[in-house]
């Protein structure tokens, strides 16, 4: 079979990327090579998700946000495991050392909320994180998908897909401040937006 150099590279890349996901010894979800649920970089409740070959996202489960994104050096896993702790290793592309979380406003006025981590699902195409922003009248649910692999056009980027539900009329969901400063938020039509102002799907992209 003759393959063009580009197609060969694509196939090899695809095989490499999918290998850890589907060729592990038991084929079970939550392979620590791709999702590590131990404390990362000094954040007690955190987990690490690998995207693509070398990209990692570190989530603070109490704040509901990615607090670090890094690229592991080729030839390394990018994650050093030591007992119940892990450390990111490689080039840091984003970091949020604040204590900021999602903020909710209604008609422009801040709403008192509490933030809750509900679940992590390891599915065939993506890792899903489920968050809930609770307030006095109900709750906003954020289902966040971190694709295992990236589309060819997204190489070099880090992509998170958000599905927001329960926002209600006149509600606005604001990204954690550090995230808003570095990530680009796109609505379902691909238009850039500053905040979430209606239920639906959004994409967060770290260039």
């Amino acid at each position: 079979m003759n393959l063009s150099p580009m197609r060969r590279r694509f196939l090899l890349g695809f095989l490499f990327l999918t290998a850890p996901a589907f060729a592990d010894e038991a084929g079970l979800p939550f392979d620590p090579e791709r999702i590590h649920r131990s404390s990362l970089d000094g954040v007690p409740r955190s987990l690490s998700i690998r995207q693509g070959e070398h990209s990692w996202l570190g989530y603070d489960l109490e704040r509901g946000t990615a607090f670090t994104v890094w690229t592991g050096k080729p030839g390394t896993t990018g994650l050093i495991v030591d007992g119940f702790t892990t450390r990111s290793q490689g080039e840091t592309r984003f970091t949020d050392s604040s204590d900021g979380s999602w903020r909710l406003s209604r008609d422009g006025e801040p709403v008192v909320t509490s933030f809750h981590y509900l679940a992590c699902s390891d599915r065939a195409e993506a890792v899903e994180l489920l968050w809930e922003v609770r307030h006095d009248e109900g709750a906003v649910r954020i289902r966040e998908r971190v694709p295992h692999r990236l589309h060819e056009s997204e190489r070099g980027q880090v992509v998170r897909v958000l599905a927001v539900a329960g926002l209600g009329e006149n509600g606005q969901l604001h990204l954690p401040e550090a995230t808003a400063g570095k990530w680009t938020l796109l609505d379902a039509e691909g238009a850039e937006t500053k905040w979430v102002d209606r239920d639906g799907t959004y994409r967060l992209i770290l260039p």
């Binding site: 079970l28 979800p29 489960l61 109490e62 992590c120 699902s121």
Partner: peptide, 24 residues
């Protein structure tokens, strides 16, 4: 270590795809 977790088999295939955080 830091949370109570429920293991959920979402699609009945015998694998636990979802780790639900019951409380932390």
């Amino acid at each position: 270590k830091n949370q109570v977790t429920e293991l959920i088999d979402d699609d009945g295939d015998g694998r636990f795809e979802t780790y639900r955080c019951v409380s932390q």
